[in-house]
Design a protein around this nucleic acid. Structure first.
Lengths: 348, 348
DNA sequence: CCATTTACCGGAAACGATTCCAGTAGCGGG
DNA sequence: CCCGCTACTGGAATCGTTTCCGGTAAATGG
C-alpha cells in the first residue's frame, strides 16, 4: 500500500525532491548519490536508487545546466547545412561531440554575415559552452565583435581570422590539392587556365585564387583567369559562359571552385556545345556524390570532410577541458581523371 | 576588509539582480519592464532600460527556460545528416523554426534504431519542447516506447507509425511519382522492372515496393523484382550486380530506390559493361545534385525536400501553440529523361 | 470627506538541481 | 575520559529568472 502523499502531483514528473521524500532522506543526499559523490553509505545508495527506479526519476538537464554553469551544448553556425559538404562536416562533428556528452545546436545563416553575428549572440544567450563556426565573411566586423564577446572557446572550420587570436581552427590545405591540379593541367599543355571561384571572403576561395596567381607569377607562359563570385550554380554558369565566349583568348581548362559552382559550370559547358575533354579540360574541387559517374569522370581536388568535422570537435573539446588552442591543417589530394586532356590545337 | 556588501563581481556578467541594483528598483520591476508587462510607469521603464544598456545585460536563456517551463528548443533526430536529402529537410525545418524563435538540437543516429531511442530520451531530459523525427525503424519497440513517454508534441518526417496516434506527420506521396515512372517504363515496352530498394522498415521503401507489387498484380504481363536492403551504395551495387547477372531473365529496367543507392547501381551497371538506355533503362528516386548531368541524364522521381522540412516545422509549431495534430502528404513528380528507352530486343 | 478603484511597485516563492557548511555519531588513541 | 578523526547526513544558500500577492499612493466618485 502506498502512503498517500499530500500534494504529490502524479501528472508532473518527479524531481530530486520527490525522490528524497520517498526515500526518506535529504535532497542533498539524493544529489550526492546521483553524482557519485564519495560521501554516501551503501544503505543510502540503495534507498535512493530504489526510489529513483520506483519513480522513474530523470534529472532535468536544464536545471543542472543552470546550477553547474555548463550546458553541455555547443553551437554550430553554418552557412548552408543543405550543402553536402557542410552536412558531412556536421556529421563528423556531431558524432565526436555526442560521444563526449555534448549536444549540437545547429543554426543556419544562409551565408549572410549579419545573420552569423546574430546567431553567435543567440548562442551566447543560450549559454552554449563552445562554438563551431564557418562564417560567411571572415572579416565581417559585427561577427568578429560578437565572437570577441563570446565567453567560451570557439573553433573556426575551414576559416581563418587574424583578428581572433583566441580561436582554434582547422582547415584544409587547399593549396596542395589545387597546385597538383594546375601542375597536371600545365603538363598536359594548357597555357590558359581559368578558376571559377567562390567568394574570396572565405579561406578556401582565397587559397585557390592564390594558387593560380602564384603559378602565373612563377610560370611566364601560363595565363590564368580567376572569376570570383558567390558559391552558387548561377555564378558558375554565368562566369563560365563569359569565359567560353572569349573567342580565341578563352581558357582551355576550367576549374570549378566548389561543389555548388560545379553544376553551373557543367550547364554552361553543355550550353556552349563543347565536349570535355576534347574542347575543354575540367577540374572540380571537393568530391561529391556522382562526380565519378559523370562522363567523362571529373578530375577532382579531394579531401576528407568527416575528418574536418571530427578534428573541429576535437579541438573544441580540448579547449573545453582547459587545454590550449591549436590550429590544424588537413591534407588535400588530387585525383586526375578523363576530364583532363591536352588542349585542342589552336588555329594559327 | 570584509565588506558585507553584496559582492558585485565585475568579471561575471550582469543579471537582473545587478540591473535592479543599478537602477535602484526591485528585481520584479526589471523583469516586468523586460517582458513587456503592462504595470510599468514610463519613468520605471527608462530607469531600467538605461541600466540594462549601461551593464550590457542579456537575459540568461537557461534560467528563463527553467522558470517558464519552455526551452524554445526542438530536437531533430535523424538517421544521417550527411545525406543531402536529410540536410535539405533540415534546412527547411531550421529556417521555419528559427523564424518562430526556436532553436534546433540535432542528433544523428547513424540509422541505428537503438540510438534513435536513446536520443529521444536525451532530448526529453534536455527538455526540448518538441521533436522532429525520422526514425530508422518505424516499428522499433524501444523507440515507440520512448516516444510515448515523451511529453511534448512530435512530428514524423517521411515516416508513419500506427502505434503513435498522437504524432503529427508529413510525408511525400511516394506512390504517385513512382507509379508515373513505372507506367512510363511499361509504355516503352518494358516487361521486367526491378527496384533496388531501401530498408522496408521505413515508409518510402515500403511505398515504393507497394507500387511495384500493385502493378504486378494489375498488369499480368509485367514481371517485377524488388530487392530490399539498406539505403547504401554497397547494397545498390551488390543487388544490381545480382540482377544483371540473371541472364535472359534479367530486368530491362532498374529503379534505384534512393539517392544513396544510386551510386552503387551506376557502379554495377558500369562494371557489367552495359550502356544506358540501350541495354538497360534507369530511373532514380530523389533529385540530387548532378543527376541531370549524368550521361544520359537520369529520369527521376522528384519532390521538394525543403517543403518537407518546412511543413514538418509548421506542424510542430501548430501543436506547440495548442492546435490539433495533422497529417500532411506532399506531392511527388516524375521527370522522364534519356535514361529510359524501349528495351533491347530479346534474342528468341 | 470617505470609499473605492486604478496604477504601480517590492518582497518572496517558485523552477529543479548542486554544493558548501555544520553537525552527529562512532571509534581509536593518548 | 576526552580529544580528534573519519564517515556520513541534513539544512540552506545559490544559479538567474518569472510571477503571484499584497501594499501604497494617487485619482475618482458620490
Amino acid at each position: 500500500m502506498t502512503t498517500d502523499e499530500p500534494r504529490t502531483d502524479p501528472t508532473r514528473r518527479a524531481g530530486v525532491r520527490q525522490v528524497a521524500e520517498r526515500a526518506g532522506v535529504a535532497l542533498s543526499s539524493v544529489s550526492r548519490v546521483l553524482s557519485g559523490h564519495p560521501d554516501v553509505s551503501e544503505l543510502m545508495r540503495h534507498r535512493v536508487l530504489d526510489a529513483v527506479a520506483a519513480l522513474g526519476y530523470e534529472p532535468d538537464h536544464l536545471a543542472q545546466s543552470l546550477r553547474r554553469g555548463a550546458s553541455m551544448t555547443v553551437g554550430y553556425v553554418v552557412g548552408d547545412i543543405s550543402n553536402p559538404l557542410t552536412a558531412q562536416i556536421a556529421l563528423g562533428a556531431e558524432t565526436a561531440l555526442r560521444r563526449a556528452g555534448y549536444s549540437l545546436l545547429l543554426v543556419n545563416s544562409t551565408s549572410d554575415p549579419d545573420l552569423d553575428a546574430q546567431h553567435i549572440r543567440l548562442l551566447r544567450q543560450r549559454r552554449t559552452d563552445g562554438l563551431l563556426l564557418a562564417m560567411a565573411d571572415e572579416r565581417h566586423a559585427a561577427t568578429i565583435a560578437e565572437l570577441e564577446r563570446y565567453p567560451g572557446p570557439c573553433v573556426l572550420v575551414d576559416r581563418v581570422c587574424a583578428k581572433l587570436p583566441r580561436a582554434s581552427g582547422v582547415h584544409s590545405d587547399h593549396r596542395a590539392g589545387l597546385s597538383a591540379a594546375v601542375e597536371h593541367l600545365y603538363r598536359l599543355g594548357h597555357r590558359h587556365i581559368a578558376l571559377v571561384n567562390g567568394d574570396p571572403r572565405v579561406l578556401p576561395a582565397r587559397e585557390r585564387a592564390a594558387v593560380l596567381r602564384r603559378f602565373a607569377r612563377g610560370v611566364p607562359d601560363l595565363e590564368v583567369t580567376v572569376r570570383p563570385g558567390g558559391f552558387t550554380a548561377a555564378h558558375g554558369r554565368d562566369a563560365t559562359a563569359a569565359l567560353l565566349a572569349g573567342g580565341a583568348g578563352r581558357p582551355t581548362a576550367v576549374i570549378a571552385g566548389g561543389n555548388q559552382i560545379l553544376p553551373g559550370v557543367l550547364a554552361a559547358v553543355r550550353a556552349a556545345g563543347l565536349t570535355v575533354p576534347t574542347d575543354l579540360s575540367l577540374v572540380t574541387c571537393d568530391q561529391v556524390a556522382l562526380v565519378e559517374f559523370l562522363r567523362p569522370p571529373l578530375a577532382t581536388v579531394t579531401r576528407d570532410l568527416g575528418d574536418l568535422g571530427e578534428v573541429a570537435a576535437a579541438l573544441l573539446l580540448e579547449r573545453l577541458s582547459g587545454r590550449a588552442r591549436r590550429r590544424v591543417t588537413l591534407p588535400t589530394g588530387f585525383r586526375a581523371d578523363h576530364s583532363c586532356a591536352p588542349p585542342p590545337k589552336r588555329p594559327t
